[in-house]
Computed example of a mutant assay.
Amino acid sequence: MTDQTWNVLLREQLSWHWTRQLRDRLDGLTDEEYFWEPAPGCWSVRPRGTGAAPAQLGSGAMTLDVARPAPDPPPFTTIAWRLGHVIVGVLAVRNAAHFGRAPTDYRSFEYAPTAAEALAQLDAEYATWLAGVESLGETGLARPCGAAEGPYAELPLAALVLHINRELIHHLAEVCLLRDLHLHTHRQPPAGGEVR
């Protein structure tokens, strides 16, 4: 039991979910699923200049729909939007602040125009995050988060790791649920029969 340090336990909480419950469920994500809008007025990732949200953020050909402050209730968001949030707001910004990734934010990020590219971005940011957490060791987890985390600057990095674990598990489970919903609402009946 001596090898079960807090650093290992925190990483295993996320990596167990990633390898046993999540990542395989994202394989084969299609562009149709990625951009599918299951409700009117969805926020998504869209070609520059085509969004109807109050603001469109991003530096490339694709932008992310946003508004500050967010409307109440906020619009429903697509898989593309949710992956954009996870890739940028949950992982890339934190990787830049704590683990040497090039600086980025919602405005400067180049959002993926395809599902495959989004999954590649997700995999890269996840790998950077997990390696970064491992590099903290035990003592690094106790270090304050610092100015990058705003009002949470004085909390230990362990609190940030727990928060990121929650965010990834929560939002990526939503992505999986949207894939299930897409499958079950777009399933074609077999020739001469009903959908079972």
Results as ranks from 00 to 15, higher is better:
Met1Pro: 14
Gln4Val: 11
Trp6Asp: 13
Asn7Ile: 08
Leu10Ile: 14
Leu10Glu: 14
Ser15Pro: 15
His17Gln: 14
Arg20His: 15
Leu22Ala: 13
Asp31Pro: 13
Phe35Asp: 10
Trp36Asp: 08
Pro38Lys: 02
Pro40Gln: 05
Pro40Ala: 04
Gly41Phe: 01
Ser44Leu: 14
Val45Lys: 02
Pro47Phe: 00
Pro47Tyr: 00
Arg48Val: 04
Thr50Cys: 00
Gly51Met: 02
Ser59Phe: 14
Ser59Gly: 15
Ser59Lys: 09
Gly60Gln: 12
Met62Trp: 10
Met62Lys: 10
Ala67His: 05
Arg68Tyr: 10
Ala70Val: 02
Asp72Val: 14
Pro74His: 06
Pro75His: 00
Ala80Arg: 02
Arg82Gly: 08
Leu83Ser: 04
Leu83Thr: 01
His85Ser: 01
Val86Phe: 03
Ile87Glu: 02
Leu91Ile: 05
Leu91Ala: 07
Ala92His: 04
Ala92Val: 00
Ala96Tyr: 13
Ala97Gly: 12
Phe99Ser: 01
Gly100Ala: 01
Ala102Phe: 06
Ala102Asn: 15
Tyr106Arg: 15
Glu110Val: 11
Tyr111Glu: 11
Tyr111Asp: 11
Ala116Cys: 14
Ala118Arg: 08
Leu119Ile: 10
Ala120Glu: 13
Leu122Glu: 06
Trp129Glu: 05
Trp129Met: 12
Ala131Trp: 10
Ala131Arg: 11
Ala142Phe: 11
Cys145Val: 10
Ala147Ser: 13
Ala147His: 11
Ala153Met: 01
Glu154Thr: 09
Glu154Tyr: 06
Pro156Cys: 08
His163Ser: 12
His163Lys: 07
Arg166Thr: 11
Ile169Pro: 11
Ile169Gly: 14
His170Thr: 05
His170Val: 03
His171Leu: 09
Leu172Tyr: 02
Glu174Tyr: 00
Glu174Val: 03
Val175Asp: 01
Leu177Phe: 03
Leu178Thr: 05
Asp180Asn: 04
His182Ile: 01
Thr185Cys: 11
Pro189Gln: 06
Pro189Met: 03
Pro190Cys: 00
Ala191Cys: 06
Gly192Leu: 04
Gly193Phe: 01
Glu194Leu: 15
Arg196Asp: 06
